[in-house]
Amino acid sequence: MTETATGAQPELTRRIREAILDGDFAPHQRLIEADISARFDATRAAVRTALMNLAGEGLVERLPNRGARVRAISVEEAIEIVEVRMGLEELCARKAAANLGDEDAAGLAELREQIQAAVAAGDLVGYAALNQEMDRRIRELSGHATAVQLLERLRAQSARHQFRLAYHPGRVAQSAPEHIAIIDAVLARDPDAAAAATRTHLEGIVRVLSELP
């Protein structure tokens, strides 16, 4: 593989990953290398490597003599993923609270206001995007590279169920105060409170997932 091809590989993997998470490819849909190659203007060898990378992330499954397809994540597995995330996200919240500087605090406080505004306006799409941004900032503030890497892989696997949760009746009324509580604990630079608020939020996600059909 050339240096150029090597440098482009993570970008191709990212683009295919995003297409899967955005629902462009449905669960159990076969991923045909020739079609993906044409869609993303990439060589079939590069596509094959990207699919192998995504299989390692749990988003794609390889089929003997049949190529690859999008892996379907059951509700039961999604619950297990959230349970595993609890310890990692508590760790990140705890470290974010301990590491918070004044400039980052100002940005987090502004994000808090944006979340409240989105809820007040009934903007579910905006609210969901702001929640993702909050999660990203806390992971970044934690400075814990290993936890962040593991969390990104776990969150990608359960992304479809996270989307369903966002539109679950009454979910915003429950989750918004939980998110605000996490932000407030980090802003207070209280690691124990940040970890506890994070656990409470994730336990709520497990309860709602358990109720999904």
Rank of each mutant, 00 (worst) to 15 (best):
E61L: 05
L187I: 06
H168A: 04
S142Y: 10
T49Q: 12
E77A: 02
A197N: 07
G143P: 09
D35V: 10
Q149T: 10
N65W: 13
A93S: 08
G56M: 10
P10W: 06
D102M: 08
A26H: 05
S142M: 10
L91Q: 08
T49M: 00
L209F: 14
H168R: 03
A193C: 05
E83A: 08
R30V: 07
E3Y: 03
H28K: 07
P64I: 01
Q9H: 12
Q114S: 08
Y167W: 04
P169F: 05
I182L: 08
L54P: 15
E80Q: 15
R71M: 01
L31S: 04
R199G: 03
V47P: 02
L63P: 00
A19I: 04
T198S: 02
H168M: 00
I138R: 10
A109W: 09
P169E: 08
I183G: 06
C92L: 02
G67S: 13
H168G: 00
E18R: 15
G58D: 00
A97F: 01
E103V: 10
L141R: 14
T13Q: 02
A185M: 07
H161Y: 09
H161K: 11
I32S: 08
R112N: 05
R15P: 00
A173P: 07
I180K: 11
A105Q: 08
V75T: 14
A156K: 03
L31R: 02
R94M: 09
V60K: 13
L21M: 12
G204S: 06
L111V: 04
Q114T: 11
E83C: 06
R17M: 01
V125Q: 15
G170L: 11
R155M: 10
E11S: 05
T198G: 01
A117M: 13
S37P: 15
R112C: 00
I183L: 06
E83T: 07
R48L: 03
R85V: 01
M52E: 12
A42M: 00
T49I: 02
A8E: 14
F40H: 12
A176S: 15
A105M: 08
T4L: 15
A193G: 03
L154P: 10
A159R: 11
A45W: 02
D135A: 14
S158E: 14
